[in-house]
């Protein structure tokens, strides 16, 4: 499967805004933060499945074809990593463990921001590190 790199950057920019909003609203308006983070977790899950709603939105807004496409597997894997952090952050907010909520959400925000602003896929790069630590964690790679 191929992905439009412009849609990936666009998705990362929206994700950055949502996660920053989660952090900002977290203390004063925790319900809003929890709902937003739960929604973002769902988006991560859909993105990992190759059905990112943000990419669908981009496709609806921008009609032109991309000049080049790229392999969709690395960003999909990274969405899965994002899902992991969002779930941990959500548990932190729901259980009232504020440091856990802040650290996990901030980690996801950092990765989304690096992707949006610099085109670096931090989530992708964790793959080899995870494999180094856990050789059994090999993922079947669907083409």
């Amino acid at each position: 499967m191929r992905a439009d790199p412009r849609a990936l950057r666009f998705s990362a920019a929206i994700t950055t805004a949502i996660l920053a909003l989660v952090l900002v609203t977290g203390s004063a308006w925790p319900t809003a933060a929890q709902v937003l983070l739960a929604a973002q977790a769902l988006v991560f899950a859909l993105g990992a499945a190759g059905r990112s709603p943000y990419a669908v939105l981009f496709k609806a807004l921008v009609k032109s074809a991309p000049r080049e496409t790229e392999d969709a597997r690395p960003p999909r894997f990274a969405q899965g990593v994002g899902l992991g952090f969002a779930v941990v952050g959500l548990v932190g907010y729901l259980a009232g463990i504020t440091p856990l909520a802040l650290v996990a959400t901030a980690a996801a925000l950092l990765a989304a921001f690096l992707n949006a602003a610099f085109g670096f896929c931090l989530g992708c790069e964790t793959y080899l590190l995870i494999r180094r630590l856990l050789p059994a964690a090999k993922l079947e790679v669907p083409q």
Binding site: L23, V24, L109, L110, F118
Partner: peptide, 20 residues
Amino acid sequence: TGLWVALATLALGSVIGVVR
């Protein structure tokens, strides 16, 4: 606290991005 964490994260991301 959340606001400061968000700002610190974006600042850290900018530094990491430029170094990278």
